[in-house]
């Protein structure tokens, strides 16, 4: 061993370290060309007047200052799109994290010993892997008006008048036009998001809880802590990094929400104003009628800044509290030692 060491160092130091650069090169080259440059290009375009009109006339790109930002913030649907996205994300995330926590608490409780956990996980995670577009069109069809399955179920159950409903001529008078009402559509979209993601969140939280040292639980039990105390005083604080991870990834994903609300949109439905998300609006700006890349880029930059600032704030809130608590505990310990 001792004889080998100089040789090894020699081989490593002289010959091979440059391979590190070769091996990471493909990643970095492709990243710079296909992701970093497009991002910078987006920022650049946000300050340009650049569009292709309906008659295929190219305007620009010429420098436009902050006018794109001024334009998208005062006209159009930018603010509404941000509001819609945030509202739909929040009403999906709160029940999602609560249900996931509850299930994770049940599944990791050694007192309960819930059986069939594997099968339950497989079932509740399943919607997550199915194409969001297919799921959305499925729900879109289920909530169809007037004679979709949900409406006919409501008639079967008696929520809406069955006789009137079954008559093709009068069905429309009692059936509910779910996808033409803003809040109905918002709730359906939030529900699909919730339904697709709570299983994922639950599995992540269970893994996090199982990662906590069993010694801590045993010690708490010996000290006479109730299961609820153990959950709030040990599990929850130690789960914080994973909760933060869940929150931030869900936020970043949620702010980019596109597939589900896009597919839920009914042509000419008045619900559109209440369900158009930021990415849908970007797509509309650069894809329909006059293709306005400048304004589309400006909205993208706003979305980027918004997500970035929010993630950073979340990091600080979560970690600062932790540190403050640690400092407090330290001070206490020092005081105790003095006394």
């Amino acid at each position: 061993m001792t004889q080998k060491t100089p040789k090894k160092r020699h081989a490593k130091g002289v010959d091979t370290s440059r391979y590190g650069y070769y091996f990471i090169a493909p990643f970095f080259i492709v990243y710079l060309v296909f992701q970093a440059y497009p991002l910078l290009n987006t920022v650049y375009l946000a300050f340009q007047r650049y569009m292709i009109t309906g008659t295929n006339k190219v305007v620009g790109p010429t420098f436009y200052g902050l006018k794109n930002f001024q334009n998208v913030l005062t006209k159009g649907s930018t603010i509404a799109a941000f509001q819609n996205t945030i509202i739909m994300w929040v009403i999906n995330f709160i029940p999602q994290i609560l249900l996931a926590l509850l299930l994770a608490k049940w599944f990791t409780d050694t007192r309960l010993k819930i059986r069939g956990q594997g099968a339950i996980k497989v079932m509740v995670y399943m919607p997550n892997i199915i194409t969001a577009a297919s799921i959305s069109v499925l729900f879109y069809s289920l909530f169809a008006y007037p004679q979709g399955p949900v409406n006919s179920l409501l008639a079967q159950v008696g929520v809406i008048d069955k006789a009137t409903y079954l008559n093709t001529g009068t069905a429309a008078t009692v059936a509910i036009p779910f996808l033409e009402k803003g809040w109905h559509t918002r709730l359906i979209i939030a529900f699909i998001n919730f339904w697709m993601w709570y299983g994922n969140t639950m599995i992540v939280l269970v893994a996090g809880m199982l990662g906590i040292s069993p010694n801590l639980f045993e010690a708490a039990e010996v000290d006479g802590a109730t299961p609820n105390q153990i959950f709030t005083k040990i599990t929850m604080p130690l789960l914080k990094p994973i909760m933060l991870y869940t929150l931030v990834t869900s936020l970043i994903g949620g702010m980019q929400m596109y597939d589900i609300p896009q597919m839920m949109q009914q042509q000419g439905s008045p619900a559109k104003d209440m369900t158009m998300t930021v990415t849908m609006y970007i797509m509309e700006l650069v894809y329909t009628g006059t293709k306005d890349y400048g304004r589309g880029a400006a909205v993208s930059v706003l979305l980027f800044l918004f997500t970035g600032v929010l993630s950073i704030i979340l990091f600080f809130i979560m970690s600062d509290r932790d540190e403050a608590r640690a400092r407090k505990a330290q001070r206490k310990a020092r005081k105790g030692a003095k006394a």
């Binding site: 490593k12 091979t16 370290s17 440059r18 391979y19 590190g20 650069y21 091996f23 990471i24 970095f28 990243y31 296909f34 992701q35 970093a36 440059y37 497009p38 991002l39 910078l40 290009n41 987006t42 920022v43 650049y44 375009l45 931030v248 970043i252 702010m255 980019q256 596109y258 990415t279 970007i282 650069v286 890349y293 589309g296 880029a297 993208s300 930059v301 979305l303 980027f304 997500t307 970035g308 993630s311």
Partner: peptide, 28 residues
Amino acid sequence: YRFKGRQLAFTFIMVVLMIPTQVSAVGF
């Protein structure tokens, strides 16, 4: 491999992990 800038490269990857991909769609 232990090469110069290895830590920097890793930090870079960690940071870009958080960047949402759809925000650069227009430029792309």
